[in-house]
């Protein structure tokens, strides 16, 4: 059964996965291009000083900041908007699998693709930055990306959660809460600005659980 669900989600996501994979490559290429451009025109030393003093690197890899967020939003929309229109989700609920397993595995599959993108960006950027900059800058750049990745993950789970919720009033409430939560992950203006990330990780881990309540409400037909 799980295999069938996996296949179904893959059909929904395949074009998006290919497009997003392309965008991830482009993001990496853009970062390489920008870094090389600045090194070429500022000179290596000046560039290092700007990277250290003015957080220039964060601007050069700015697409890494937003791509996981856009990906999360896209995947969430693609996976669940069609399911919720004209209550198609009801059909899935007749499958011989518990609704909780169904929902969590659908979300799990979507997240697996997002995670693959995050891992690709993380290691790709690691390579790109390490070629041009010393270990201190590499470490700071990588640590700076973690909140963005957590933010992207949160956006995916929150989008799925909002769409799976059957009532519009609840969706609006959840939308406001989601905006408040998501903005927490994008507050840094320089490298490695978050003192501890554990609370922020915990929040992302908790969000998938919310989907069960939305699914339950849908099953009961609450409006």
């Amino acid at each position: 059964m799980l295999k069938a669900i996996l296949y179904k989600e893959w059909i929904k996501l395949r074009w998006a996965v290919i497009v997003i994979a392309g965008l991830s490559l482009l993001t990496l290429a853009y970062s390489i291009g920008m870094i090389n451009y600045y090194i070429e025109f500022q000179g290596a030393l000046n560039n290092w000083l700007y990277v250290i003093g003015k957080s220039l690197l964060l601007r050069n890899i700015v697409f890494v900041k937003y791509l996981p967020l856009i990906t999360g939003l896209t995947f969430g929309l693609l996976q669940f908007v069609q399911e919720m229109s004209r209550n198609r989700m009801r059909l899935s609920y007749h499958l011989p699998i518990s609704e909780k397993k169904l929902l969590l595995s659908s979300v799990g599959i979507g997240y697996a693709f997002l995670l693959a993108e995050i891992v690709f960006l993380f290691f790709g950027l690691w390579l790109v930055v390490a070629v041009n900059y010393p270990a201190e800058i590499v470490q700071k750049a990588l640590l700076s990306m973690i909140p963005w990745f957590l933010g992207g993950s949160a956006v995916y789970f929150l989008t799925s959660f909002i769409i799976l919720e059957p009532s519009w009033i609840y969706r609006i409430i959840y939308g406001i809460v989601s905006a408040g939560l998501t903005s927490l992950y994008f507050q840094a203006s320089t490298y490695d600005q978050y003192r501890t990330l554990w609370t922020f990780v915990l929040i992302v881990l908790l969000i998938p659980l919310t989907i069960l309540f939305a699914g339950h409400r849908f099953r009961r037909g609450t409006k």
Binding site: I173, Y174, I176, V177, G180, L181, I203, L206, I207, L209, T210, I211, L212, F213, H216
Partner: peptide, 15 residues
Amino acid sequence: NKLSRYVIILLIVFV
């Protein structure tokens, strides 16, 4: 489902 509801409420409390 109960737990899930409380997670939602906790997120609301948090925000």
